[in-house]
């Protein structure tokens, strides 16, 4: 093989045909309210830790729907529960995060 001094650029396209949503559905099984999220971003805007470490519950839920590894993000959660105060869809966000965490640790 020849080294031409450059490599094929990696595509950032999300291919839904290949997305693995098993984790999302495992979470939804325990915490069905996750499906009600409309990605308004209230949780992220209210988040205590997000501005300092990138935690965003909206992006966590979106990431689960797109099959990405959200562990680095949820590790930034301090479980203060502020997000549950603002969620207009009444999602028990604190419980949701614990559920995601628990499933990951299995």
């Amino acid at each position: 093989m020849i080294d031409f001094g450059f490599k094929k650029a990696k595509s950032s396209t999300v291919n839904l045909d290949e997305v693995d949503m098993r984790l999302y559905y495992a979470v939804a099984e325990i915490e069905p309210d996750i499906k009600r999220c409309m990605e308004c971003g209230s949780c992220t805007a209210a988040c205590t830790s997000g501005p300092f470490n990138g935690m965003s519950l909206r992006q966590v839920i979106h990431g689960l729907q797109r099959g990405t590894d959200v562990r680095p993000m949820i590790s930034g959660c301090m479980l203060c529960g502020k997000c549950s105060m603002v969620c207009p869809r009444g999602i028990n966000t604190r419980h949701l995060l614990l559920t995601i965490s628990r499933i990951y640790s299995k």
Partner: peptide, 14 residues
């Protein structure tokens, strides 16, 4: 620009 050539190649590959 050689540093960008990977984009060019990736498009053709696609």
């Amino acid at each position: 620009i050689k540093a960008n050539r990977g984009y060019s190649f990736a498009n053709t590959h696609k």
